[in-house]
Amino acid sequence: MNPYPALVASVTRHRGVTACLVVMEDDGIVVEATAQIGVETAAFAALTASLYRKSARAAAAAGFGGVSFCELEAERGRVLAAGRNGLVMVAVAEPRVNLGLLRLELLRAAAAL
């Protein structure tokens, strides 16, 4: 049974979350996604996976070890990403989202990847 729809649903049920995707870290290809109309998932997945990969490389180069979570704060929203086993769980959220709760949920979901 495919476990990813349930993991994605556990994140998207939070108020203010506009998209949640499971993406392959190396390829940037979408494994599972739920998004509101207007979010271009393929492009978003590719760019976010690239960002996550490069963050991991930057952390490793700085001697900080592996990256398990990264967050991007933009003018009109946030992108949160947590990875494990070559997969990255990405959430896109509006500024009004309960950040602490979403972060906890995303890390919990990523632990099951």
Partner: peptide, 11 residues
């Protein structure tokens, strides 16, 4: 190579 990815290339 590892500097890019399939998703980025397709994009």
């Amino acid at each position: 190579d590892m500097e890019s990815s399939l998703g980025i290339v397709q994009l």
